[in-house]
Write a protein that binds this DNA or RNA. Structure first.
Lengths: 156, 156
DNA sequence: ATGACTGCAAAGCCTTTGCACGCAA
DNA sequence: TTGCGTGCAAAGGCTTTGCAGTCAT
């Protein structure tokens, strides 16, 4: 069984759809429209995988959008709370964030321990195995995170 | 399939065996004997699962062992480097550490998102599925980390 | 007009680094 | 005696909080 790159199954339209979904959810939750939050949503919509808060801040600066770093963190916290974004800890010292697809499909991550690169992958076998663990040991599983460590193609 | 608590398969002797193994590895690697490092090893030997640097520092204080926090971090770094200890990121803001069993057996973690409790579990099905992913996408998998999020028995 | 949203700056926390002393070899 | 190991204190880096001005409603 081989892992298939996530990008082969999801087109650029997913990002726009997610952004729309996110804005609607925020409005439904009683949030007002705000430039900073909207800007963060746009950055996350454009990148389907694992951005750090600093990454987001940098992309906003590159786009000439003056957004305070605190606002980035606040937006990420709110989006995470509404489960529109997933917060990940991939072993590096800084947290990373990525959008949650409305459809429920999701991916996991391979982290190159040499260069730090993060690659998404999906694998039906693992998903199946994880599902079977649900409910064991009196613990109610609601979510899971899988990280493969190793060396990427160019580093090994 | 149900997850089996890790403790049912490993007795208290494992810790002592690991400590011995760790000391020998350090000596072989050219390290001198030092009180702080030895103290950290003893704490890790007594607890098979997921301690933060602060946890370790607290246990040392409780044992009247005056060890600087910097020394704890330095010891953990060295032990991690020699692969005697695994550094984990379980979603909380702080890193956690646990000993690596010489035999190769290992466990993963369930994290209660309500109370923060960390529970170890092992599951052959997941291990098998992860093994099959190895080598996919040009990435060489050397290690993996699986975290189940949800609610523990007393919180759900 | 009201209070949510934001940017800036300051504060917090975990972790790392600098430095001089002490101890292993 | 040599220089690794350690403790203490200071510095770093990411993240959160306080606060006053701004903007959506």
């Amino acid at each position: 069984m081989s892992a298939r790159p996530h990008s082969q199954r999801h087109g650029p339209a997913d990002g726009a759809r997610w952004a729309e979904h996110a804005r609607a959810s925020l409005e439904r939750a009683g949030f007002r429209r705000g430039g900073a939050r909207r800007a963060v949503i746009e950055v996350l919509a454009a990148e389907p995988c694992a951005l750090s808060a600093l990454d987001i801040d940098e992309r906003l600066s590159a786009d000439r959008r003056r957004v305070g770093r605190a606002s980035v963190y606040r937006a990420l916290e709110q989006l995470t709370e509404l489960e529109l974004v997933h917060r990940l800890d991939l072993g590096s010292e800084t947290a990373r964030y990525e959008r949650v697809e409305p459809g429920g499909e999701h991916h996991h991550h391979m982290v190159c321990d040499d260069c730090g690169k993060v690659l998404p992958f999906e694998d039906a076998g693992i998903e199946r195995a994880v599902t079977k663990v649900t409910g064991g040991a009196g613990f109610e599983v609601r979510d899971h995170e899988i990280v493969l460590h190793g060396a990427c193609e160019s580093c090994r």
